[in-house]
Amino acid sequence: MAHTTKQKPRYHIAVFLAPAVIVYTAVMIYPLFNTLRLALFTEIDQQRVWVGLQNFRTLFGDAIWSDQFWNALGNNAWFFLIHMLVQNPIGVALAAILSSPRLRFSAFYRTAIFIPTILSFVIVGFAWKLILSPIWGIAPDMLDAIGLKFLYAPWLGKEEYALTTLSLVSVWQYVGIPMMLIYAALLSIPDEILEAGECDGITGMSAFFKIKLPLILPSIGIISILTFVANFNAFDLIYAAQGALAGPDFSTDILGTFMYRTFFGFQLQLGDPHMGSAIASAMFGVILIGVCIYLFGIQRRLRSYQF
């Protein structure tokens, strides 16, 4: 830093920071806290009235609300669990295969497998809805071709399958992200380490589980928290495929759709911004808990290696 500038007031720093800080504060941070604040009010005769924690008491205590809330939270947890159990292992497996040296066409596979990730939920939701639809019959016909037609059910229309089906659709769409991040992590493992393992007779599968997997654990941690935040904030896919009522009979309702219905109103239900804010605050709490568990519980235990 030049010495002369130290004495003068450095207005340019403020000029450089101002636009980003203003937009970010006004459109993101302020509304975030304002939403938490609005959760403490309600509307009586078109007047905004302070009610303290009443909205939360309704949300958790009133059976009409609390049933919906726990249903949405439980569904959301299942949605997240399926992502963790299906999306991440598939992503890691694909990345492991892609990263093997001298594999031909790997750029092509990478590009192609990433394509669903760039599509919008609207496209993905409708496309799968059509394919799984009993009217069109692509899914039953394909199962028929391999003799498994008895397995077919209108998955999106059945309460017991709909959420799992949509979770798997979302997994199908987002497998590209863990694949890419793990692929990058695997490429950054130096050859010397793997060669040292080879000298000790560790190759193939055991090289993956004993050497590579421990080294990519921090990346898997990051993917898990990204998945967590994205899942507990999800909305688009359920809305596009099942509508705001998250049918059949709310079996695919997650926090995002529940909040949307509550604050924006849907069909016969009138919008209630204050209850909506209460749900948003609850979502904020869930995400905060997840991020804290990751930052203080998981990330510290995962040792990062710098090569």
Binding site: L17, M28, I29, P31, L32, V229, M259, P273, I287, L288
Partner: peptide, 24 residues
Amino acid sequence: LMGLYLALGIMIPIRIGTVAILEM
């Protein structure tokens, strides 16, 4: 501090503040 403040938004989704954004 400014760096941390600006980084907050990486982990917190903006959708949480939708009610107040709409009002604004």
